[in-house]
Design a binder for these strands. Structure first.
Lengths: 233, 233
DNA sequence: CGAGCCCTTGATGCATTTCAACGAATGTGG
DNA sequence: CCACATTCGTTGAAATGCATCAAGGGCTCG
């Protein structure tokens, strides 16, 4: 049930959450040690929930592999997708006692599950770690602000262009060819549009020669500059 | 140039930022003392900027009186409004070295201007204060997530209904009659719609008997329950 | 080969934007 | 105190973007 913090996959995940020189921070080693004692490495199957909206938010999760989707369902059966999380992200930041959205695995994967009280006690002993963590929160905040900006200002097809550029950075680390781990419906629910509009967006960008579509999930960005230009209006 | 932390207005503003029993926190008094020595109370005139996008983000501001609007302008001359801030809010949370939006006063008012380094040094000495501050950040994050949800899922008139309910809570503290400090254009830019759509939204809600409009800026919520119901679909 | 799933495409209708005109409130100078 | 200009909000009509409804196409897996 415990984890092995010497594993490369876990180390890199932690490093990309907490920053490059994480190991040099005061308390970093104690933190890792406590994690290896008390944290759990959990495997999650495709389409299974890590937690659901209104569950008590007692844990924080760090994705090691796989893709996670944060979603909330509306009174009317429809669904909003808040985010797609990859290695190097972090979920369960909430200071509330309940989660305000659900977290679902889009693919088989593993996460490190950390008790919040453990995190809290580390923070109290090692302010440097706490500071890093809160810098992370701040980056999330800025990311969401950008998303809010895009949702408020851009047309459906522009939002899709933004999305593809973002995915290219986050999945392919900037490579033009990458594999989308989510369905058209997921993308539509993330960008606040219908499935059909999302699909038309793909077709339109393809016709404009900005992207090519090998198959439904495999995309290549052909003209990144044009895509950027289109996205930013 | 320094501030008087014994002033009731300043105390209540700090209390509503940092929570009810702020004074009981370890380090609260030192914090207040340092503020009275090093922070500044600044008067801002209507329509003047407190800071602009891309300015170095060296300060944090706490509104004491007046209303502040956070905005960002697009490449195409249009504008996005991120938030309206009142007493008890806080601006300049960013951990980046530059602000990612501008802050403009919608009315004459005063803010307390605090050097970030001062805040940082307080945080290092008094973790309890830091913790409170980061809880605050977390509330902001959740607020923005809700906003994102609304932007992605709701129709224009529903977004307006949400907005009015939010303003009723924040301005009138729940009273049904309140004064909107922003123009229709500001509201439209906040909710991602055209000025005309915002205006039609007001008319429509009025015709449905949910609100009444004394004059452009003075609004009464007549049927809060119906408004809630309409907003939530 | 056929079933089922997801994606695409077309046609239609509704929501929202855009363009344009009008109305209400405010301020200014005669 | 009254024309007049100015600013801001409302309303109408036309155009557009997007959702919805409906059908067809291409995978994948049995």
């Amino acid at each position: 049930m415990t984890i092995d913090t010497s594993k490369v996959s876990i180390k890199t995940s932690l490093a990309s959450c907490f920053g490059r020189n994480f190991q040099e921070l005061e308390g970093a080693n104690s933190f890792l040690e406590e994690l290896s004692k008390h944290a759990q490495e959990i495997h999650i199957n495709e389409n299974c929930y890590i937690f659901k909206e209104k569950d008590p938010s007692d844990f924080i999760y760090i994705p090691i592999s796989g893709v996670i989707m944060l979603e909330r369902s509306t009174s009317k059966g429809s669904r909003h997708v808040f985010a797609f999380l990859f290695t190097g992200n972090l979920l369960g930041l909430s200071e509330f006692s309940f989660y305000t959205f659900s977290a679902r695995a889009l693919s088989n994967g593993t996460v490190v599950k950390i008790n919040k009280q453990l995190i809290q006690s580390i923070f109290e002993r090692y302010p440097a770690i706490a500071k890093r963590f809160h810098e992370f929160t701040n980056h999330v905040l800025n990311y969401i602000l950008d998303q809010l900006f895009i949702m408020g200002q851009k047309s459906a097809h522009q939002r899709l262009a933004h999305f593809l550029l973002d995915m290219s950075n986050r999945i392919g680390h900037g490579t033009s060819k990458f594999y989308l781990p989510m369905s058209r419906q997921d993308i539509a629910d993330y960008l606040g549009m219908s499935l059909e509009t999302a699909s038309r967006g793909f077709s339109s960008l393809k016709k404009k020669g900005m992207i090519s579509i090998q198959n439904n999930y495999r995309i290549t960005i052909l003209d990144e500059e044009a895509l950027h230009h289109f996205a930013d209006d």
